[in-house]
Design a protein around this nucleic acid. Structure first.
Lengths: 321, 321
DNA sequence: ACCCGTCAGTTATACGTATCACTAGAATCA
DNA sequence: TGATTCTAGTGATACGTATAACTGACGGGT
């Protein structure tokens, strides 16, 4: 073995006094009984001694796969997706896969056109219908926080239960005029929240905003300035809730005395502002989604999953005065 | 070409009526003049028509590289690192590289032991000295927000200028008792902030906390309860500032009337709480670091870079009353 | 007429792995 | 005892690419 480069299975073979194919058989562990235990030990020792690590490129070429999974999300800077990534990456490396992020903006409404060639599978979240339609069929896919009726197995939190919890909490406090500060993005999870809310709250008023503190602020300002303003604002995520919180402060309204506010996610924001919010099991969702994807890749069926999401009650909700 | 699998350069060759090597020469573009323009056109058309994409595994095997960069950071869920990732990934894909994250906790003080085999280069941030020492030499490395005197070229923001801006701002408002809510993590960037602050503020009092809202809250509570409490708290990041903000509220202290608070990062948190903070050019740092790494990989020298960081003045700082 | 250089390609080969096809000797069996 | 099966391996090959080495044709210079 040349001193400057990594040892190959051929080097290990030479060191152990066997052939390269024997090394491969021993180390892959897929050929029980093909090699005597004594020889196997010998090979393993030699590999250990030389610090042998199989060359992934050669293995990928031979096996026709890449051991790479692509995570398609709008932005890794959004804490929810960062948490999904973290959970998914953990499981991926356990299985010897690596996970790369492919950003696919929420606004992108055309068919998905990522590099679907060099990957073994895909995890995706928050894609519009049209984008989804652009997925070429053969790539194994698991979706996170997406329509269970869609083309791939999903890992979701229980949106309807969460909405139910929020409404029950607010009704229990005595709220009768409830507003919805909705993310104006046409993806399943937000449509689903809106529908669930409309089902349970006949008097619902809705305002729409892009997902940012600034946009939430503007829209909440409008909603809270209206005559007969809502006494509670259900926001589609914590960023919007933070905007609403700021709007309330700006209007001299007391939180929660004059207006109660709830969010979704339970990021730093919610802790800092002491927001009542639905804590999404983002990291767990990433873990499970990747586990399911591994199942699919190994030919096992993937079981769609619904996780509970906990309503965290803090100081942004209370009895209307 | 079998209908079920991707076309190879051999398929393209057959379609264009030339040899595989000609296809390779044409498509790599590295052999100007070796192939006639007519043939080249012909090959390019065939490749286009078949939808040919080179097999990365084969290319990697042949060329002995992986086109993969590893980003070593404590946690991708921290918004600063997520932003660095975003910037770095953008540049990486432009160069045909993919970027994988390897988590290396702040607490990890042993030598770094990531899989340094299957990558072409590394970007790292916030590593302790001992971890850094564990890096095997030959892997090209660029560091982000790290000691410029370290073993690799760095991309930093101007910590000293930022500290200078904060102190000047607070002095200008009339503050005389300034405290430092410090991250109790032994990495260069935080040591550097503490040193810069100690240089400029003789009366400095320091409290230490892990980077979280809860820990910041506890420590700030202690600092703000002391006799002769500071009238301004310089926090090492926005999370700690959020904790300090909460502590002030908890003690019935007015922000900024009774206590001014500053942070670092300019995440969502700072916007939501209207914190005065230093906006770090995280995404730009990621971009530049990856650009430098590409330079190194192509044999060009990497130029260490210092970016300005802007002090964003909001409502958490003011004249002490 | 001879040699040489250039042009425009082709052929052959190596990268490192996994696996298929084969085999020498030992063990089993009728 | 001769035929068969089993054991524990070896040897050869293919994955798809990039490139070094080769080749035949043509034109120019002397």
């Amino acid at each position: 073995m040349p001193a400057h480069s990594r040892p190959t299975s051929k080097d290990v073979a030479a060191a152990a006094g066997v052939s390269q194919s024997t090394v491969s058989m021993v180390l892959s562990g897929k050929w029980p009984g093909r090699v005597s235990e004594a020889t196997a030990q010998n090979v393993r020792e030699a590999a250990q001694r030389l610090g042998y690590r199989p060359n992934p490129a050669a293995r990928n070429l031979r096996l026709g796969r890449t051991r790479t999974i692509m995570l398609v999300v709008p932005a890794i800077t959004a804490p929810f997706f960062a948490a999904v990534y973290t959970g998914a990456a953990k499981v991926a490396v356990e299985h010897g896969f690596s996970l790369v992020v492919f950003p696919w903006p929420l606004e992108a409404d055309g068919p998905f056109s990522g590099p679907q060639e060099a990957i073994d599978g895909m995890l995706a979240s928050s894609m519009g219908e049209n984008s989804l339609a652009g997925m070429r069929r053969p790539v194994p896919l698991v979706m996170v926080d997406s329509d269970p009726a869609g083309p791939a197995p999903t890992v979701n939190f229980d949106v309807q239960a969460a909405i139910g919890d929020i409404v029950a909490h607010l009704r229990g406090l005595g709220h009768t005029r409830i507003g919805h500060l909705a993310a104006d993005i046409n993806v399943w999870t937000f449509r689903s929240r809106a529908l669930g809310l409309a089902d349970r709250v006949p008097e619902l008023v809705t305002g729409r905003a892009a997902i940012s503190i600034a946009a939430g602020f503007e829209t909440a300002l409008r909603m809270l300035s209206a005559p007969d303003r809502p006494t509670a604002l259900v926001c589609d995520d914590d960023t919007l809730a933070a905007g609403a919180h700021k709007a309330a402060r700006h209007l001299g309204l007391n939180v929660p005395g004059d207006v109660s506010i709830t969010g979704f996610d339970d990021l730093y924001l919610a802790e800092a502002l002491e927001l009542t919010t639905v804590r999404l099991p983002a990291e767990r969702m990433g873990e499970l989604a990747m586990t399911h994807l591994m199942d699919v890749l190994e030919g096992r069926p993937a079981t769609p999953t619904l996780l509970p999401a906990e309503l965290i009650i803090r100081r942004s909700t209370g009895t209307p005065t």
